[in-house]
């Protein structure tokens, strides 16, 4: 394995981590607001709050990790993506800012504002939509390079069916991933009412995610034939991904082993996400930038990898502690132990 491949694999892993934890967070926010609006707040509110409270900051860090890491390993991405993403990324920052601050103000400041609550729920869908645009752009065809620099063709981007399919997949995935996780979480908390509702949401969103994924593959054939052909080389990964999808839906349908249902979902997304990433290789941005011509020098790459390993040695025990104290602490999950907040 070359340093380039190690670098991009590590980053891809972080992006995958972000997609999972952020989806849970975004979807939970949306369900929480939806239930407020549909007068079912009493069912979902407590379970969602209990999960989100101690972990919200951690979610954001995964994203920061990814973009700091990609500029570190591939400094040329700063030039290409930095130049073209000013508008979409700025919009994403604003949405993330509104969402993050609202969450803290609401939870710790105990303020209640309806318009802010609405913004919180909607940003949960708009953020993944605006971030997923980056994946569409990476397929090429929307960027023009001239002597003045690189620029994004917004007209083409918005008119492209591919970008809308990617948006669709990101939004439906957020709702699906989140619902499956929260079903498991509600089950662990012994909250049957919440579990039943969330299980319904999970089943409701399972089909649409699969359909929009198929739609993307179909459109890729016309938009980026090279990528489409490469995708066939890893078709076996997509098949495995689909089998895990079937397992999740089957377990949810049988109403048992919700934890395994979520683990199967993790594998489903991991296989699909890596199949996409591997077939995208070696391009970071079709056709301008590959991982080889965008790579940093060897010394920096080694330094980053060493820092990364040292950092993980510090973080994994800390994350384990966080999980033991909250996410997987029976007393906490069941709400027996509420007191403690400063």
């Amino acid at each position: 394995m070359t340093l380039e491949v190690i670098g991009i694999s590590v980053l891809w892993l972080f992006l995958f981590g972000y997609i999972i934890v952020a989806s849970i967070d975004f979807g939970a926010g949306f369900f929480s607001v939806y239930s407020h609006w549909a007068n079912q707040q009493h069912i979902l509110h407590r379970i969602i709050q209990r999960y989100l409270s101690p972990v919200w900051e951690v979610t954001n860090v995964f994203l920061v990790f990814f973009f700091v890491g990609i500029v570190g390993f591939f400094p040329k991405t700063a030039y290409y993506y930095g130049s073209i993403l000013l508008v979409p990324a700025s919009i994403a920052i604003v949405l993330l800012a509104i969402r993050g601050s609202y969450y803290a103000f609401h939870t710790y400041g105990e303020t209640e504002r309806n318009w802010y609550l609405l913004a919180y729920g909607l940003t949960g869908l708009f953020i993944p939509a605006s971030l997923s645009i980056v994946l569409t752009i990476s397929e090429g065809g929307f960027v023009e390079e001239s002597a003045a620099g690189v620029a994004l063709d917004y007209g083409k981007l918005f008119a492209s069916p591919l970008s809308w399919s990617v948006v669709l997949l990101s939004v439906t995935s957020v709702l699906y991933i989140s619902a499956v996780f929260l079903t498991y979480y509600a089950d662990a908390a012994g909250d049957e009412q919440a579990r039943a509702l969330l299980r319904r949401y999970a089943l409701l969103w399972s089909g649409p995610t699969m359909l929009s994924a198929l739609l993307i593959i179909y459109q890729l054939r016309y938009h980026n034939p090279e990528h489409y052909d490469n995708l066939w080389n890893v078709a076996w990964m997509l098949v495995i991904s689909f089998l895990f999808f079937v397992i999740t839906v089957w377990l949810l349908g049988r109403q048992r082993r919700f934890g395994w249902a979520f683990i199967a979902l993790l594998f489903q997304y991991a296989f699909a996400f890596y199949a996409y990433g591997i077939s995208h290789y070696p391009y970071l941005l079709y056709p301008y930038l590959t991982i080889y011509d965008g790579f940093t020098n060897e010394t920096m790459a080694m330094a980053l990898i060493v820092a990364f390993i040292a950092g993980l040695l510090l973080l994994i025990p800390s994350l384990y502690l966080l999980m033991r104290l909250f996410l997987f602490n029976k007393a906490y999950v069941k709400g027996k132990w509420e007191g403690g907040k400063g």
Partner: peptide, 11 residues
Amino acid sequence: AIFLGIYLYTW
């Protein structure tokens, strides 16, 4: 961030 979350909820 991890330890702030823990500190905050374990008074």
